[in-house]
């Protein structure tokens, strides 16, 4: 099982490297949205901690959506998904492989986006770089779980580009609220435990939807 997951993750990352345009489009998309926020928000307020964390997570969600859209399109292209599904591999392992591939992909983009965010908005972001990366990891786990499930679910459906965010965004509102609150307390210098309840909620959300998605993925992957 672990070997199968690893095989799928490595394959996905290799494909991501071969298709660097996916990575760069996601990176530049994130930076573009950051710029739009920088222009759209009033200058004085943009330094306020409350707005900062909201901006950061909106950018995270919108760019994360790009990485979800690609995961199953790659599989559908030459009917690879069928070859994957007839392999003697548990469907859950395929799910975890694709989910972890997405998480790693998102994190690599975040490593570059966080400093840009800090430069454009507030220096304290760069000082808290490792905390921001940890938060990105926690968010990516929940987002990646539900996102991979729903990306697989919509992969055969018309208008999937619209349907995916329509289904995904309402479902991850708890994750968004938790991330925004924890980041606010980070930026206010209270540390990650300044919002301990929210942290527990976030970890719980990740755990619940990783397990549920793992279990129901089988039903999504029938043709």
């Amino acid at each position: 099982m672990v070997r199968d997951i690893w095989t799928v993750v490595i394959k996905d990352l290799k494909l991501d490297i071969r298709r660097a345009e996916n990575f760069f489009s996601m990176l530049f998309f994130s930076v573009t949205i950051l710029l739009i926020f920088a222009f759209a928000l009033p200058q004085k307020q943009s330094t306020q901690v409350d707005i900062l964390s909201g901006v950061f997570w909106i950018v995270f969600l919108l760019s994360g959506l790009l990485s979800l859209n690609k995961t199953f399109q790659q599989e559908k292209e030459n009917g690879c998904i069928e070859a994957l599904l007839v392999s003697p591999v548990n469907r859950g392992a395929i799910f975890l492989g694709k989910m972890l591939g997405t998480v790693v992909f998102i994190l690599i983009v975040q490593i570059l986006v966080i400093p840009v965010f800090g430069i454009l908005f507030h220096h304290s972001v760069i000082e808290n770089f490792s905390w921001f990366l940890l938060m990105s990891l926690l968010a990516a786990l929940g987002f990646g779980s539900l996102g991979t499930l729903l990306a697989g679910l919509t992969s055969d459906i018309r208008f999937r580009e619209i349907l995916l965010p329509l289904l995904l965004f309402p479902l991850i509102i708890p994750l968004l609220l938790a991330c925004v609150r924890i980041t606010q307390s980070l930026l206010a210098g209270e540390g990650i435990l300044g919002a301990g309840d929210w942290l527990r909620l976030l970890v719980g959300f990740d755990a619940i939807f990783m397990i549920v998605s793992f279990l129901v993925f089988e039903f999504v992957m029938e043709l």
């Binding site: 499930l149 289904l167 479902l171 129901v216 039903f219």
Partner: peptide
């Protein structure tokens, strides 16, 4: 039916 059921369950 399957896909909708999955959405209803996670929802």
């Amino acid at each position: 039916a399957r896909l909708s059921a999955v959405v209803a369950i996670i929802g």
